[in-house]
Each structure stands twice: as structure tokens, then as C-alpha cells.
Write a protein that binds this DNA or RNA. Structure first.
Length: 198
DNA sequence: TGCCCGATTAACT
DNA sequence: GTTAATCGGGCAA
């Protein structure tokens, strides 16, 4: 148990990495939980920040895999991504929800919330709970304060359309732990399903 | 320089 | 279901 994700985990296609992250554990300074929802973004995808080329904000996406890309959303929230594939591919996986497991009391305090279900159920919410900000943009995922542990059991994965985008809305590139109550939104009946093992 | 709008959330009606 | 909050990025001029 508790096998760290090797950096090469991220040196693969974003649509392989995204479902493989479901069930893995994400900790930031020893606080976090099990990843239950992610979305894949590739630079050939009009909804991706990297679609129109490299800028100051998205520069980390154009770098090597295994690093954190953190950006500000709606001028208010922070969102965490894991950079995938190889140099220049500019693809990343957005981390959208966790099932809290470590440091729940601290996360409740940061979020000002009692309901465990809402602590990390959304990209902005989980960054607030884990205290991840733009200051952490570009940090390596295999070194503290990040800690990523591989899942140790078989999981059922659902997928469907991504949330909150206006371009390429039909692409089913949101992946999640089937039936989890910590999803930011449930998966519709139309979504497909994959069984993935360790 | 100005303007539009977003990979969101919480508080409303 | 609807909408305000809030501000930097990206593009047009």
C-alpha cells in the first residue's frame, strides 16, 4: 500500500493518465484524500488553456510532465492540474474532486464548513481545502509538499462531458469514481463506464 | 489601453 | 433555477 506514483506515470497520454488517477491519493502537506473526479485537456482541444499557444499563464503546460499547473479561475478560485505527456504536448489533467481522508479538521477550518461532502467536491473547493494557490504553480508532483500514492484496488470509472466549459462541450473527457458521493456533480446515465485495476 | 469573459462557487428566488 | 462576486488573460484597436 501507499506506493508513490513514479514520475513516468505522467509521461503518458492524457486520456490514459486521467482515468488512472481515479482512486489515487493526493496529499498536499499531508492533507488531502482520494481523487474521485478529473478532466482531461489536450492542446488540440479548443477548451484547453494551451489551445492557442504558449503564454505566461500556461507556460507550465508546455514543460515536462509531472508538474503542477495552477491557475486562477473567475478571478476568485484556484484550480490544480497535473501536466502530462512530454515536452511541448501541453496537455494536463484538471483535478476536480477528492474524497477527504487526511486532515479533515484542517480542511473544515479552511473551508468554514461542517459538511465533509462539500470540502473537496469541486476544483476551487479542493484547492481551498488543501491551501493550494498560484504560489505552487510549477511545483514537482513527486516531491513535498505534494505526495501522490497509487490506488491499491480495482475501481469502476464513469466518464462523460466536462463541466463549465463552452467549447468542445460534447467531448466525454470527464472521468470519475462511479457512484462516489464526493463528485462535484453526478455522472448522467449516458456516460460510459470502465473498470480499471491496479 | 479597453473590453469581454472564463476549466467556479455560494447565496439567492 | 438564477445570479453576483471578482480579476487576470487574451485579443482587438
Amino acid at each position: 500500500m501507499s506506493v508513490p506514483l513514479h514520475p513516468s506515470f505522467f509521461a503518458r497520454g492524457v486520456h490514459t493518465v486521467a482515468p488512472d488517477l481515479i482512486g489515487a491519493t493526493l496529499l498536499f502537506a499531508d492533507i488531502g484524500g482520494i481523487i474521485v473526479e478529473v478532466e482531461a485537456y489536450h492542446h488540440t482541444d479548443p477548451a484547453a488553456h494551451s489551445f492557442r499557444g504558449r503564454t505566461e499563464r500556461n507556460a507550465v503546460m508546455f514543460g515536462p510532465p509531472g508538474f503542477a499547473y495552477v491557475y486562477r479561475s473567475y478571478g476568485i478560485h484556484w484550480c490544480l492540474n497535473f501536466v502530462c505527456e512530454h515536452e511541448g504536448s501541453a496537455s494536463a489533467v484538471l483535478i476536480r474532486a477528492l474524497a477527504p481522508s487526511q486532515g479533515i479538521a484542517t480542511m473544515r477550518r479552511r473551508r468554514g464548513l461542517a459538511d465533509e461532502r462539500l470540502l473537496c467536491s469541486g476544483p476551487g473547493r479542493l484547492c481551498e481545502a488543501l491551501a493550494i494557490t498560484g504560489a505552487h504553480n510549477g511545483l514537482a508532483l513527486d516531491r513535498p509538499p505534494f505526495r501522490l500514492l497509487a490506488r491499491d484496488s480495482e475501481v469502476e470509472i464513469a466518464n462523460g462531458p466536462r463541466i463549465g466549459i463552452t467549447k468542445a462541450v460534447e467531448l466525454p473527457w470527464r472521468y470519475g469514481l462511479k457512484g462516489s458521493r464526493f463528485l462535484s456533480k453526478p455522472f448522467g446515465k449516458v456516460s460510459s463506464e470502465i473498470v480499471s485495476s491496479e
